[in-house]
Amino acid sequence: MATTAATQQQARAAELNVLARTQRSLWRDAWYRLIRNRAALVGLFIIGFVSLVAIFADFNLFGIHIRLAPYDPLLIKQNNQLMEPIWTRFFGSKFTDPAYIFGSDELGRDILSRLMYSSRVSLVIGVVPVTIVTTVGLLVGMTAGFFGGAVDDLLMRITDVVYAFPDLLFVIIIVATLRNTALGEAYDGLLIIFVGIAVVNWVGVARLVRGQVLSVKNREFVEAARAIGATPGRIMTKHIFPNILAPIIVTIAFAVPGAMLTESVLSFLGIGIRPPTPTWGVMINEGFVVFSTTPWPVLLPAICISVVLLAFTFVGDGLRDALDPRSKM
């Protein structure tokens, strides 16, 4: 025991000795700090698991067909409504069926399959709008911060107006008013949610990027680059961008669950994804009618949302600590 402790201590000392150990980049250092954070590691595993489930719920590409979901999530079976999950059998429930591991909903659809397909929507909602928001926010924010002038003024005026709306209120207005247009009906309402989230959130990213650029652009290394004749484009991409990346990564890590949350709230209020397409929010909305009879059609998606959102928060917190060890909160 004592020797292991001693070796561990030695290893730790070697780790801390920056000069003696093999050289690592700042990013690799941050990565090690991240995976040493247990909560973040658990979060990463959960996100990985959910992504795999989402991809392989019904995977049919390159001639490979893998289908994890036991049923079609839209398949309605008469006489099989409101089955309870099989584990409730041990607590005296008479309404279980081994064919439905997680039970069935008020129309007799398999809850497990619906949960699996829901994770697909959540994943898409987490990835697509956040990519748009980040790209637009980066472009506008860097231009505004670097060149100032009219773009900068315009950005700040837009931010003032958008900040007067609470985020969610603005998304709800956009989604609700445009719901019956072609845009609102495309992809079961997915597209309008993308648009809503993107329109509301790019401003925050742009403002963050602008602030970061302002704090960096007069530092010596930028001046040095300018002195040796680097073009503005090169200064922005090669010198400023890598130095403002850390806070942007943290923002993205929190924007992904934020977008997922927005979708579930909208669907829960009945103005998000159109049923019968399953999402966790839609499932909660639909299951609420039978909540007093059997809680499972609502509880299970609620648990899924909670676990996934927590996983992203853990990773986001871990990233923030790893990328900027000084700002431990």
Partner: peptide, 17 residues
């Protein structure tokens, strides 16, 4: 962390149950 992460309507569901 849990309080800031889990959305209100989900917490509400657990509490109502």
């Amino acid at each position: 962390t849990i309080g800031t992460t889990i959305p209100g309507f989900v917490t509400a569901i657990f509490l109502i149950y």
